[in-house]
Amino acid sequence: MKKSFRPYLAFLLLGSLLSFTACKEDEEPAPDHEHELITTITLTLVPTDASKPTVTAIWEDLDGVGGNPATVDDLVLSANTTYNGSISFASVENHDGHSHGHDLTAEIKEEGEAHEVFYVVTPQGLVSFEKTDKDTNGRPIGIETTATTSVAGSGTVRVVLKHQPGTKSNSSNMSTGETDVDIVFETTVQ
């Protein structure tokens, strides 16, 4: 009887051995941020009339969706002014207190035939955006724009970046494809 229980001990030993070797040293998780996620959008409007101020509005959410809310600048424009607009999309990551930025605008421009930026202004006519850049198929991209204001007022500018792989065409619009960016700037024209 005594003898027959020896293998049992061997099994137990084997088991404990395996579970101990399993416990490796503690690893710490890297700070969580998804690589290459758009975190920072900068809308820059340079007036053709040099006496008026250049406008820069930044929308930023460094920890992505959820967590802390985004910080958003207001867009303050001069009335009766024409601006050369450009928008940039960047991925900014914080490593040990340092921030590392990676501009994604060039990539988007390169894949222009699969992307388009839309500007939705409320109320209509507060600012009007005209896209001045074209993709390889001659369709607008919307990174470069001309923005024109007339009378003073206030409202919002919504910026939407659409990913439209294979679906961007003469008939495509803002409801085509997948949304990469959909943000709103509070806007004042004075």
Partner: peptide, 28 residues
């Protein structure tokens, strides 16, 4: 291991590794 007329003793160890990678469709 058969414990005589009493029955059978069984030991099972399993090691599994599961690696799940999901590739989203964003930009390049």
């Amino acid at each position: 291991y058969k414990t005589g007329d009493l029955g059978e003793l069984q030991f099972t160890y399993g090691l599994q590794e599961n690696r799940r990678q999901e590739y989203d469709r964003h930009r390049n």
